[in-house]
């Protein structure tokens, strides 16, 4: 018991130290690093959002960049050309759009399992990519600019202006704390335990009475919405959105962050994002063909770390007992299980 409390205390102290360091950063470091760090934290948010479905739900999604990019496009489309958009309306709208996209894509993709789930999410993600790439809705393949960053203004008085780098940084930090708090709460709640139960043994969870599809769909939509938080912030930071933001490359990069950080904790993927983005920055500065070096290092990390690949493998290729929804395969699998037993 005492030991439990001691570890807990250490975790709290460590979290507090990180938070203090993050708060102190803009007062100590040059603006370039503050912006760089803000960017890394935003990617960390996206990775943590993704990990709700990958690590806790056992669902490997390859369309989270689409939720991320969609929120960015919503901000871009809602921003007046020469004026600041209102944060209080565009932020919730962007996040809700991503959550709604998660709900729709999830409702269709969650009828499949394993490798099929990955492919269906990939297909939907690419659909959204090509929607923005090939139509004139928002600048096509050239993307679209957000000339003035969003603000909160009441009766003409500006209360919060994301155009100021330090304000932007603290807004990102506040969102990050909110996302971590929300995910921690969800993961520890009965809902989170049911989600993990469905990951470990879908058949058992269902026969206990858990509505698996609904649980996963809620998690998927929530995860999509949180990816939208990150996407909104990223769009606001760069002042520009382009279709690449939604592409599968981006989805795969975030998945790598999750793998580096580990699947089982809420903040692991944040660490993964910081490591990956930090690594990229260092290699870029020192090497010509830094992409090659980066690839090799990532492969090394992912293979060596005990958490990543080993946990994601059964999610894709299925070694745990699972009941596919469509009856034909359910029965086929059942036959295999019975045959094995006999």
């Amino acid at each position: 018991m005492f030991e439990m409390n001691a570890t807990r205390l250490r975790v709290w102290l460590f979290t507090l130290a990180c938070l203090i360091a993050a708060i102190a950063l803009p007062f100590l470091a040059p603006t370039y690093y503050v912006q760089f760090f803000a960017k890394a934290l935003i990617m960390g948010m996206l990775a943590m959002a993704l990990n709700l479905v990958v690590g806790h739900g056992g669902l490997v999604s390859l369309c989270h960049a689409a939720f991320f990019g969609l929120a960015g496009y919503v901000l871009a489309l809602l921003s007046p050309r020469y004026d600041a958009a209102s944060l209080l309306t565009t932020f919730p709208l962007a996040v809700l759009s991503s959550a709604a996209a998660g709900l729709v894509i999830g409702a269709l993709a969650l009828r499949t399992r394993g490798i099929y789930f990955i492919m269906v999410t990939l297909a939907f993600g690419e659909m959204l990519f090509f929607f923005f790439h090939d139509t004139k809705v928002a600048g096509g393949s050239d993307g679209i600019f957000i000339n003035v960053r969003p603000e909160i203004a009441v009766a003409g008085r500006q209360l919060l202006d994301l155009d100021k780098p330090i304000t932007f940084y603290f807004f990102v930090l506040a969102c990050l704390v909110g996302v971590v708090a929300l995910l921690t709460m969800v993961v520890r709640s009965p809902f989170g335990h049911a989600l993990a139960a469905a990951r470990d043994n879908e058949r058992r969870a269902r026969s206990l009475g858990f509505p698996i599809f609904r649980i996963r769909l809620i998690a998927f939509a929530l995860s999509g919405g949180l990816a939208g938080v990150a996407g909104y912030l990223a769009a606001a930071q760069f002042g520009f959105v382009a279709p690449q933001m939604l592409g599968w490359h981006q989805s795969a990069t975030v998945l790598v962050m999750v793998l580096i950080g580990g699947l089982r904790s809420v903040t692991g993927p944040l660490v993964g994002a910081l490591v990956l983005i930090g690594l990229e920055e260092v290699l870029k500065a020192h090497l010509d063909n830094w992409k090659l070096a980066e690839g090799l290092i990532i492969i090394g990390i992912v293979v060596m770390l005990p958490n990543g690949i080993r946990q994601i493998w059964p999610m894709i290729f299925g070694s745990s007992p699972e009941v596919p929804v469509d009856a034909g395969r359910a029965e086929a699998e059942h036959a295999v299980a019975e045959a094995r037993h006999a």
Binding site: F191, A194, A205, G209, F210
Partner: peptide, 30 residues
Amino acid sequence: TIFPKFSVHENVRLAAQARSSAPLRMFGGV
């Protein structure tokens, strides 16, 4: 057919949760 990586208590607690009044509550720890 059980949850092999969870403790005995967590296995059975999940079962009890499935039949509780709010099996999918999202706030408050288990």
